[in-house]
Amino acid sequence: MEIAGFGVEEWLNKWEKSATYDISQSTISSMTMAEALTLDGNDGASFYDMLDKQKMNYGWIEGSPAFKREVATLYKHVDPDNVLQTNGATGANHLALYALIEPGDHVISEYPSYQQLYDIPKSLGADVEYWHIHEDADWYPDINELKSLIRPNTKMICLNNANNPTGTLLDEAFLKQVVDLAKQVGAYVLVDEVYLPLDDPAAFTSIVDLYDKGIATNSLSKTYSMPGIRVGWTASNHEVAELFRKYRDYTMICCGVFNDLLATYILKHRDQVLARNRQLVMNNLNIYKQWVASEPRVSVVMPQAVSTSFPKLDIPEDIEAFCVRLLKEQGVLLVPGSRFDVPGHVRLGYCADEDTLKEGLKRLSAFLRQYD
């Protein structure tokens, strides 16, 4: 099996630990364990009471019933039994593609987006066509292009909503048009949904609440600021969940007793987590907007209060060379757009802590002055 190198992950694996001012990430500033434990109002006593009673065996293979119930409440029409715990959203995406895609299948993937969604199907022998997003249309794809791409044998349409790296959110009306086209040929629609618009969470609609053959993947890594526990999930109909169970047995056993307990605890206290993150996102988004307005070499389609953005830099230099020099000379980390096959742009994660964001942007501006 041949597969392309994972561009963004290879970049971060190489450089992220070298950064002083990391404004490359798409996570909302990760919580410390101490921060997480304050959510119960009793310094984590409720969590540790549960933990102290657990044997460190394999635990619940698919995720505990409590975890499944909490995840199911995030949707309108998902039975807890059809929620399967995975190793992050990357594990969820891999499971869905591994279980459903076969050699010769036709797959349509939003592009650029999270690289798993097109390169894993390619590695499995699928015929993958790109459904391009367009900067001049606020990074939306064109529904008429999807109409021209879809075939009678299209097996799956893969989306990333909100999009990584751009932060663009596909609204419900647009998703319904996608679903209408998928229904015509019986295609699955797989949507990586790890980013929630925190200015207006109600504006987000999950694919599983729109379409019986919709498959949602998600995790606690981005919106919930807990990437360290590596817990994600798939949400689907019963038939798909039953199929996933077979393939899941080959890819993982469980996420671990501790991780399941902490994931459930975070979801039980999600209102507090989202309140914390909403304040951080909206504050940092205002800082970011002001910076963009004052920086002549930067333009951007602003994200809808999700944690990733994709500004364009007006510089006469290869974007990867620029990002390496920026890191080495200023300690500031960005992800070059070439890692998403869009040179000239960078992924800028404005949802680091406020001090890191301000100093990172200040240093980035100073570095850009060399071209004036």
Rank of each mutant, 00 (worst) to 15 (best):
I3N: 01
I3H: 01
A4D: 14
F6E: 13
F6W: 12
V8G: 06
E9Y: 02
W11M: 07
D22L: 01
S24D: 13
M33N: 10
E35C: 05
D52N: 14
K53I: 05
Q54T: 01
N57V: 15
S64Y: 10
L74I: 13
D81V: 02
G91V: 03
I101Y: 01
E102V: 00
S109G: 10
Q115M: 15
Q116W: 06
Q116V: 05
D119P: 00
P121S: 12
W131N: 05
I133P: 02
Y140H: 14
P141H: 09
P152T: 09
K155S: 11
I157T: 04
N161S: 02
P165Y: 01
P165F: 00
L170W: 12
L175A: 04
Q177C: 04
V178H: 04
V178N: 09
Q184R: 14
G186W: 11
V191M: 14
E193W: 04
L198W: 00
D209N: 14
Y211R: 05
G214C: 03
S221V: 07
I229F: 02
E239F: 02
V240Q: 07
E242M: 14
R245A: 02
M252G: 04
A263C: 02
L267Q: 06
L267Y: 04
K268W: 02
K268G: 13
Q272I: 08
R276D: 13
N277H: 08
R278L: 05
N283M: 10
N284G: 09
L285Q: 10
N286M: 00
K289G: 12
A293W: 08
R297Y: 12
V298I: 15
Q304T: 11
S307W: 04
T308V: 15
R347D: 03
G349T: 07
G349N: 04
C351S: 12
E354I: 11
S365K: 13
A366K: 12
